[in-house]
């Protein structure tokens, strides 16, 4: 089955889901779509630039808290304004953080991003008057495309207008990211992933490109974070905790970082598998740990790697 057909079927099923699927499963699609947006960005850094961030929950948090502040403090309810503000603040925070982090690679980069993530987590946890501390902040129901939908019950709002709004954001984010990774800029990122020394001698400024990838990935994570707010209606520090950073790296590995849609698939499987495992056993992290170990050993290319056919040498020579 061709990739385009699978994609069309997946998109069709996603569009039809609110009409045919149980509401509970439709609502589970909301965190999936939010994480999918964030993971498209994370994979620009991970799969295309070769940098593994263990602190991207920082940007999920920036996006989510931006929405919470705007709706509950500044009384701004427009989701479009929230998304733009989240993206702008994500970039603003990522610019200096990225400038420091991309000077390092491998475990040093990972540890630095983790450290910055923990600084932000501690900030939102401890500055109680500003952020509500461990209780978090309310993320009031936003308007969508200028339309206030206050009259609709919350479940109907989420499984209806907000669902399609999230889907539209995901489709738009996917199209933009597809264009980025297939651009001359995207090619330069791949050279840096494969061999930074060689890339440098071809005149490609490695640190500058890494920084750009970092900022773009942060923008995506912040938009994803903002999308996570309305379903729960509350934003608290656990969203910025290091386990969230671990979760999104897990999703990327689960789906396969070598494939464009791998992380999106990873987010989908993670959300539904987590929900199912949590409903069956209380120690769900143990099961997930075992799954991750199995993937690393048996399928290092992730779920997408099991399906994507790599072109053979003979085929590519002909």
């Amino acid at each position: 089955m061709s990739g385009r057909l699978v994609l069309a079927l997946a998109l069709g099923a996603t569009v039809l889901a609110p009409l045919v699927a149980p509401t509970y499963h439709v609502l589970l699609m909301l965190p999936f779509m939010a994480y999918a947006v964030a993971l498209l960005g994370l994979n620009l850094l991970f799969g295309y630039t070769g940098l593994v961030s263990f602190g991207h929950a920082l940007f999920l948090g920036v996006g989510a808290y931006t929405g919470a502040f705007l709706t509950s403090v500044f009384k701004v309810r427009s989701m479009e304004v929230i998304l733009v503000a989240a993206a702008a603040l994500g970039a603003l925070v990522a610019a200096p953080v990225g400038a420091l982090c991309v000077r390092y690679v491998k475990i040093y980069f990972g540890m630095l991003t983790l450290a910055f993530g923990m600084v932000f987590y501690t900030f939102v946890l401890k500055f109680y008057r500003l952020t509500g501390g461990d209780e978090g902040m309310p993320f009031l129901r936003p308007t969508l495309l200028g339309r206030s939908i206050e009259g609709l019950p919350k479940t109907d709002y989420l499984a209806g207008p907000y669902y399609y709004y999230s889907l539209a954001v995901l489709v738009l984010a996917t199209l933009v990211m597809w264009r980025i990774v297939h651009s001359p800029f995207g090619l330069c990122l791949k050279t840096i992933r494969d061999n930074p020394t060689k890339a440098e001698t071809l005149g490609i400024g490695v640190a500058r490109y890494r920084w750009c990838a970092f900022v773009i990935s942060a923008v995506y994570a912040a938009v994803g974070g903002a999308l996570l707010g309305p379903p729960t209606g509350n934003v608290d520090p656990t969203l910025a905790y290091w386990t969230q950073s671990g979760n999104i790296v897990f999703m990327t590995l689960l789906g396969g970082f070598a494939s464009f849609f791998g992380p999106v698939l990873g987010a989908f499987v993670f959300i539904y598998l987590q929900d199912w495992v949590m409903s069956v056993v209380p120690f769900w992290r143990l099961i997930f740990g075992a799954i991750l170990a199995a993937i690393v050993i048996a399928a290092p290319g992730g779920l997408a790697g099991l399906w994507v056919r790599r072109p053979s040498v003979e085929a590519s020579s002909s």
Binding site: R179, I180, S183, P184, F185, L187, C188, K190, T191, R193, D194, N195, K198, A199, L202, G203, I204, Y209, S316
Partner: peptide
């Protein structure tokens, strides 16, 4: 670049020479 094809490798060099790398 192990995962890039011959053409992609040479394209990367030409992208750099022409200054097209900023074209996102």
């Amino acid at each position: 670049f192990p995962d890039l094809t011959v053409l992609e490798t040479l394209q990367a060099a030409v992208v750099s020479r022409l200054g097209h790398g900023a074209r996102l």
